[in-house]
Deep mutational scan, measured.
Amino acid sequence: MTEYKLVVVGAGGVGKSALTIQLIQNHFVDEYDPTIEDSYRKQVVIDGETCLLDILDTAGQEEYSAMRDQYMRTGEGFLCVFAINNTKSFEDIHHYREQIKRVKDSEDVPMVLVGNKCDLPSRTVDTKQAQDLARSYGIPFIETSAKTRQGVDDAFYTLVREIRKHKEKMSKDGKKKKKKSKTKCVIM
Protein backbone atom coordinates (compact mmCIF):
# COMPACT_ATOMS: atom_id res chain seq x y z
CA MET A 1 0.00 0.00 0.00
CA THR A 2 1.38 3.38 -1.01
CA GLU A 3 1.77 5.99 1.72
CA TYR A 4 1.43 9.69 0.95
CA LYS A 5 2.85 12.38 3.24
CA LEU A 6 0.53 15.37 3.00
CA VAL A 7 1.12 18.66 4.78
CA VAL A 8 -1.63 21.23 5.43
CA VAL A 9 -0.27 24.79 5.54
CA GLY A 10 -1.81 28.24 5.84
CA ALA A 11 -2.32 31.16 8.19
CA GLY A 12 -3.80 30.75 11.67
CA GLY A 13 -7.57 30.36 11.82
CA VAL A 14 -8.20 29.39 8.17
CA GLY A 15 -9.55 25.94 9.10
CA LYS A 16 -6.61 23.61 8.49
CA SER A 17 -7.45 21.44 11.51
CA ALA A 18 -11.19 21.55 10.78
CA LEU A 19 -10.56 20.30 7.21
CA THR A 20 -8.25 17.53 8.41
CA ILE A 21 -10.58 16.37 11.20
CA GLN A 22 -13.54 16.46 8.81
CA LEU A 23 -11.63 14.14 6.44
CA ILE A 24 -10.39 11.79 9.18
CA GLN A 25 -13.31 11.70 11.63
CA ASN A 26 -16.26 13.01 9.60
CA HIS A 27 -17.16 15.76 12.01
CA PHE A 28 -16.81 19.53 12.23
CA VAL A 29 -14.87 21.16 15.04
CA ASP A 30 -16.14 24.70 15.44
CA GLU A 31 -14.12 25.88 18.45
CA TYR A 32 -10.75 27.40 17.58
CA ASP A 33 -7.82 25.80 19.35
CA PRO A 34 -4.53 26.86 17.73
CA THR A 35 -2.51 23.85 16.58
CA ILE A 36 1.18 23.40 17.23
CA GLU A 37 1.43 20.24 15.15
CA ASP A 38 -0.86 17.22 14.81
CA SER A 39 -0.46 14.10 12.72
CA TYR A 40 -3.29 11.94 11.37
CA ARG A 41 -3.41 8.74 9.33
CA LYS A 42 -6.25 7.39 7.24
CA GLN A 43 -6.56 4.55 4.75
CA VAL A 44 -8.58 5.50 1.67
CA VAL A 45 -9.18 4.27 -1.86
CA ILE A 46 -8.36 6.83 -4.56
CA ASP A 47 -8.93 5.86 -8.20
CA GLY A 48 -9.05 2.18 -7.25
CA GLU A 49 -5.76 2.27 -5.32
CA THR A 50 -5.79 1.70 -1.56
CA CYS A 51 -3.43 4.16 0.05
CA LEU A 52 -2.48 5.49 3.44
CA LEU A 53 -2.65 9.23 3.95
CA ASP A 54 -0.20 10.53 6.53
CA ILE A 55 -1.43 14.07 7.15
CA LEU A 56 0.48 16.70 9.08
CA ASP A 57 -1.71 19.53 10.34
CA THR A 58 0.59 22.46 11.01
CA ALA A 59 0.68 25.64 13.08
CA GLY A 60 -0.43 28.77 11.26
CA GLN A 61 0.71 31.10 14.02
CA GLU A 62 3.86 33.03 13.22
CA GLU A 63 5.54 32.06 16.52
CA TYR A 64 5.83 28.48 15.22
CA SER A 65 7.30 29.42 11.85
CA ALA A 66 10.72 27.99 12.80
CA MET A 67 9.18 24.50 12.71
CA ARG A 68 8.05 24.90 9.08
CA ASP A 69 11.30 23.98 7.34
CA GLN A 70 11.36 20.62 9.11
CA TYR A 71 7.87 19.48 8.09
CA MET A 72 8.26 20.94 4.61
CA ARG A 73 11.33 18.74 4.09
CA THR A 74 9.36 15.55 4.83
CA GLY A 75 6.12 16.41 3.00
CA GLU A 76 5.45 15.04 -0.49
CA GLY A 77 2.52 17.35 -1.21
CA PHE A 78 0.99 20.46 0.30
CA LEU A 79 -2.55 21.77 0.76
CA CYS A 80 -2.13 25.56 0.81
CA VAL A 81 -5.21 26.76 2.68
CA PHE A 82 -6.68 30.24 2.96
CA ALA A 83 -10.09 31.39 4.22
CA ILE A 84 -12.35 33.00 1.61
CA ASN A 85 -13.34 35.60 4.23
CA ASN A 86 -9.74 36.57 5.07
CA THR A 87 -7.79 38.44 2.38
CA LYS A 88 -4.56 38.42 4.43
CA SER A 89 -4.62 34.60 4.57
CA PHE A 90 -4.94 34.57 0.76
CA GLU A 91 -1.99 36.96 0.39
CA ASP A 92 0.06 34.76 2.77
CA ILE A 93 -0.21 31.80 0.36
CA HIS A 94 2.60 33.27 -1.75
CA HIS A 95 4.97 33.16 1.24
CA TYR A 96 4.08 29.55 2.08
CA ARG A 97 4.59 28.50 -1.53
CA GLU A 98 7.96 30.26 -1.78
CA GLN A 99 9.12 28.68 1.48
CA ILE A 100 8.06 25.20 0.29
CA LYS A 101 9.92 25.66 -3.01
CA ARG A 102 13.03 26.90 -1.17
CA VAL A 103 13.05 24.05 1.37
CA LYS A 104 12.34 21.40 -1.29
CA ASP A 105 14.86 23.10 -3.62
CA SER A 106 12.42 22.66 -6.50
CA GLU A 107 10.04 24.71 -8.62
CA ASP A 108 7.89 21.62 -9.12
CA VAL A 109 6.30 20.55 -5.82
CA PRO A 110 2.81 18.96 -5.70
CA MET A 111 0.38 21.52 -4.23
CA VAL A 112 -3.32 22.30 -4.19
CA LEU A 113 -4.70 25.76 -3.42
CA VAL A 114 -7.68 25.47 -1.06
CA GLY A 115 -10.20 28.24 -0.36
CA ASN A 116 -11.90 27.17 2.86
CA LYS A 117 -15.07 28.44 4.58
CA CYS A 118 -17.02 28.71 1.30
CA ASP A 119 -20.23 28.23 3.34
CA LEU A 120 -19.81 31.75 4.78
CA PRO A 121 -21.61 34.68 3.11
CA SER A 122 -18.88 37.20 4.02
CA ARG A 123 -16.49 36.46 1.14
CA THR A 124 -13.55 38.86 0.64
CA VAL A 125 -11.54 36.68 -1.77
CA ASP A 126 -13.25 36.25 -5.12
CA THR A 127 -13.28 32.75 -6.65
CA LYS A 128 -11.77 34.16 -9.85
CA GLN A 129 -8.86 35.70 -7.90
CA ALA A 130 -8.06 32.30 -6.40
CA GLN A 131 -8.46 30.51 -9.75
CA ASP A 132 -6.11 33.02 -11.37
CA LEU A 133 -3.51 32.54 -8.64
CA ALA A 134 -3.71 28.74 -8.91
CA ARG A 135 -3.42 28.96 -12.70
CA SER A 136 -0.33 31.18 -12.41
CA TYR A 137 1.21 28.57 -10.06
CA GLY A 138 0.13 25.69 -12.32
CA ILE A 139 -1.76 23.97 -9.49
CA PRO A 140 -5.41 22.96 -8.91
CA PHE A 141 -7.79 25.16 -6.89
CA ILE A 142 -10.64 23.76 -4.80
CA GLU A 143 -13.15 25.57 -2.62
CA THR A 144 -14.07 23.76 0.57
CA SER A 145 -16.21 24.02 3.65
CA ALA A 146 -15.03 22.02 6.64
CA LYS A 147 -18.46 22.75 8.15
CA THR A 148 -20.60 21.27 5.35
CA ARG A 149 -17.84 18.89 4.11
CA GLN A 150 -18.07 20.39 0.60
CA GLY A 151 -14.88 19.71 -1.35
CA VAL A 152 -13.01 18.16 1.60
CA ASP A 153 -12.37 14.73 0.06
CA ASP A 154 -11.76 16.37 -3.31
CA ALA A 155 -9.00 18.62 -1.90
CA PHE A 156 -7.03 15.80 -0.28
CA TYR A 157 -7.62 13.32 -3.12
CA THR A 158 -6.60 15.89 -5.74
CA LEU A 159 -3.35 16.39 -3.84
CA VAL A 160 -2.69 12.63 -3.92
CA ARG A 161 -3.28 12.68 -7.68
CA GLU A 162 -0.83 15.58 -8.02
CA ILE A 163 1.79 13.60 -6.07
CA ARG A 164 1.21 10.57 -8.32
CA LYS A 165 1.65 12.72 -11.45
CA HIS A 166 4.82 14.20 -9.99
CA LYS A 167 6.28 10.77 -9.14
CA GLU A 168 5.42 9.49 -12.61
CA LYS A 169 7.09 12.49 -14.22
CA MET A 170 10.18 12.10 -12.03
CA SER A 171 10.53 8.41 -12.86
CA LYS A 172 10.20 9.16 -16.60
CA ASP A 173 12.85 11.86 -16.28
CA GLY A 174 15.04 9.41 -14.37
CA LYS A 175 14.68 6.77 -17.11
CA LYS A 176 15.61 9.32 -19.78
CA LYS A 177 18.75 10.24 -17.85
CA LYS A 178 19.67 6.58 -17.37
CA LYS A 179 19.25 5.89 -21.10
CA LYS A 180 21.51 8.81 -21.94
CA SER A 181 24.19 7.67 -19.52
CA LYS A 182 24.40 4.23 -21.18
CA THR A 183 25.98 5.73 -24.30
CA LYS A 184 29.62 4.72 -24.36
CA CYS A 185 32.59 6.34 -25.93
CA VAL A 186 35.21 4.09 -27.53
CA ILE A 187 38.68 5.48 -28.12
CA MET A 188 40.86 3.55 -30.60
Rank of each mutant, 00 (worst) to 15 (best):
F156D: 02
G138Y: 07
E76D: 12
Q61I: 06
S39T: 10
E107R: 08
V109H: 01
Y40C: 00
Y157R: 12
G174L: 08
L6K: 02
R41W: 02
R102A: 12
L56V: 14
V125N: 11
K176E: 04
D69I: 02
T124V: 09
T58Y: 00
V152M: 04
P110K: 02
K169N: 08
V44D: 12
D38G: 01
H27T: 15
D108Y: 07
Y32N: 01
G15P: 15
C51V: 13
V152C: 08
F82Q: 05
E49L: 08
F28P: 01
A83Y: 01
I55F: 14
R41D: 01
R135M: 08
D33W: 02
D69E: 13
T127K: 07
I139T: 13
A59Y: 00
D132M: 06
L53T: 07
S145C: 14
L52M: 13
P34G: 00
V14S: 10
A83W: 02
L52C: 14
D30T: 08
G75E: 03
G174A: 04
K184N: 03
L79Q: 15
P34M: 01
K42I: 09
T35L: 01
R164C: 05
R135C: 14
I55G: 00
D153N: 07
I100L: 09
V14N: 12
C118I: 10
E3Q: 13
T158F: 05
M170L: 06
K16Y: 15
I36Q: 01
A59T: 03
S136M: 09
R41K: 14
T2D: 13
D38A: 02
L120G: 13
G48N: 09
T127Q: 06
F82R: 01
D30A: 05
T50P: 13
E3Y: 13
T183V: 02
F82K: 03
E62P: 07
V8Q: 02
K182G: 06
G15W: 05
D30C: 06
E107I: 05
D30W: 03
F90R: 15
I46Y: 14
G77H: 01
G48T: 11
K128W: 05
S17M: 01
D30R: 04
I139Y: 12
K167I: 04
I100G: 02
D119V: 03
L6H: 02
Y71S: 14
K169V: 04
L159A: 05
T158I: 09
I24Q: 06
T158P: 05
E162V: 04
V103Y: 04
D154I: 06
L113Y: 12
T58G: 01
I46R: 14
H94I: 15
Y4T: 12
H94R: 15
T124I: 08
A130G: 06
Q61A: 14
S17Q: 02
V81P: 03
L113S: 03
D119Y: 04
M188S: 14
G60V: 00
F156C: 05
Q150K: 03
V45W: 05
K175G: 11
H166D: 10
L133A: 12
S181Q: 10
Y157N: 10
Q131L: 06
F82A: 14
I46L: 10
G75Q: 04
K104N: 15
A59R: 00
K172R: 05
I100V: 11
G10L: 01
G10K: 04
Q61L: 10
D154F: 06
G174C: 07
D105L: 09
G60T: 00
V114P: 05
K165C: 05
L53I: 12
V125T: 10
Y64Q: 01
D47M: 13
H27I: 15
S65M: 11
V9E: 00
T50S: 10
P34D: 01
Q43C: 06
Q61W: 01
M170D: 04
Q70V: 14
P121T: 11
E31T: 03
P121H: 10
L23D: 01
K184V: 04
M72G: 05
D33Q: 01
G12I: 04
Q43W: 04
D54F: 12
D173S: 09
D154Y: 05
K117Q: 12
T2R: 13
G13K: 10
L52T: 14
D30V: 05
T2L: 10
L52S: 14
S39R: 12
P34C: 01
I100Y: 11
K177N: 11
G75C: 03
K165F: 08
H166A: 06
D54N: 15
M170K: 08
P34H: 00
Q22C: 05
P34V: 01
A130P: 10
L79C: 08
I84Y: 12
A66W: 15
Q25M: 15
S89E: 11
V9L: 08
Q61C: 10
D105N: 03
H166V: 07
A18I: 06
Y32V: 01
S39F: 02
V29Y: 15
D57M: 00
S39M: 03
V29M: 08
M72F: 03
G10E: 02
V152P: 10
L120T: 09
F90D: 14
V44G: 10
A83C: 08
I36G: 00
Q131I: 09
N26L: 05
E62N: 04
Y40G: 00
P121C: 08
I142V: 12
A134R: 15
F28T: 01
G60M: 00
V125R: 09
E49N: 11
G13E: 14
T124W: 09
K169G: 09
Y157I: 08
M67H: 03
Y157E: 08
L23A: 09
T35S: 00
Q61H: 11
V186E: 13
K176M: 07
G151H: 11
Q25V: 15
V45Q: 15
V152D: 09
S17I: 01
A11Q: 10
V186L: 09
D132A: 05
T50Y: 13
D108V: 08
D126L: 07
Y64T: 01
E63S: 02
T58F: 00
A134Y: 14
R102T: 06
R135Q: 08
Q70S: 14
H166K: 06
I187G: 13
D38Y: 01
Y157W: 07
K128L: 05
K184M: 07
K165M: 05
D33F: 00
K180T: 08
V114M: 06
A11L: 11
K172N: 10
S65R: 12
K128N: 07
D54W: 14
K128T: 06
I93V: 05
G60Q: 00
D54Y: 11
D33P: 00
D30S: 05
E3C: 10
G13Y: 12
S39V: 01
D30L: 10
G174R: 15
A59P: 01
H27Q: 15
E63I: 04
L120A: 11
Q99Y: 04
T87N: 06
C80K: 02
Q70W: 03
Y32M: 01
V9H: 05
T2V: 09
Y96N: 13
T20N: 02
T158K: 09
V160D: 03
I21C: 03
L56Y: 03
T183C: 03
E98W: 01
A155W: 07
I55Y: 01
R102C: 14
